[in-house]
């Protein structure tokens, strides 16, 4: 298939890529742009390790083509911190120990962030549903739920400002 120029806006920067149109978004992000924070854990769109935000909503980047993401604002785990200051959800993950090996963490954090974007005050069940598509083999999820709850309770916005 003929290669094609694709412009992806990732974390506020436009990247011009010359790629096969069949390239998955996750491949574009990891292999062409070189942002390796986003992970891959399966070949069946089942694990969520590759989750990124597209216009603030979570999407599994192994389930879309890079060309389909053209024209949207893509945010990866690397785009959450601003000038070295971590986002509240990242601080909360640190405080709750909501990761262990950390391999699921980028995707898990992006799903959590998307959930909070959509619903700033989720119930425990809504949090669990919000991250149901993300597998974590290490933590048992409860610490992740606590981290999202801590952000929802406003714990980290007050400290920041």
């Amino acid at each position: 298939m003929e290669k094609k120029v694709v412009v992806l806006n990732v974390n506020g920067i436009d990247y011009e890529l010359y790629i096969n149109p069949k390239t998955l978004l996750v491949e574009a992000i990891r292999d062409y742009i070189g942002l390796t924070g986003t992970k891959r854990g399966c070949d069946t769109v089942s694990c969520g390790a590759c989750t990124v935000l597209i216009n603030g909503m979570s999407i599994k980047s192994c389930s879309v083509l890079a060309v389909q993401a053209e024209g949207y604002k893509i945010t990866t785990i690397e785009g959450l911190e601003k000038n070295g200051k971590l986002a509240p959800i990242q601080e909360a993950f640190l405080d709750q120990g909501a990761y262990q090996c950390g391999f699921c963490a980028p995707g898990m954090i992006m799903s959590s962030q998307a959930l909070l974007n959509e619903n700033p005050n989720p119930t425990e069940w809504e949090i669990r549903e919000g991250i149901e598509g993300n597998i974590c083999r290490c933590t048992g999820y409860n610490s992740i739920v606590r981290a999202v709850q801590a952000v929802a309770s406003g714990k980290y916005t007050e400290v920041k400002s």
Binding site: G37, I77, Q90, F93, Y99, G102, F103
Partner: peptide, 21 residues
């Protein structure tokens, strides 16, 4: 005491480089 994991910053910001990366 409440000590944050010392590898935490690398892991929650995507900086941690795994063999996969």
């Amino acid at each position: 005491t409440h000590v944050r994991n010392i590898d935490g910053i690398a892991k929650v910001t995507g900086r941690a480089v795994y063999t996969f990366d």
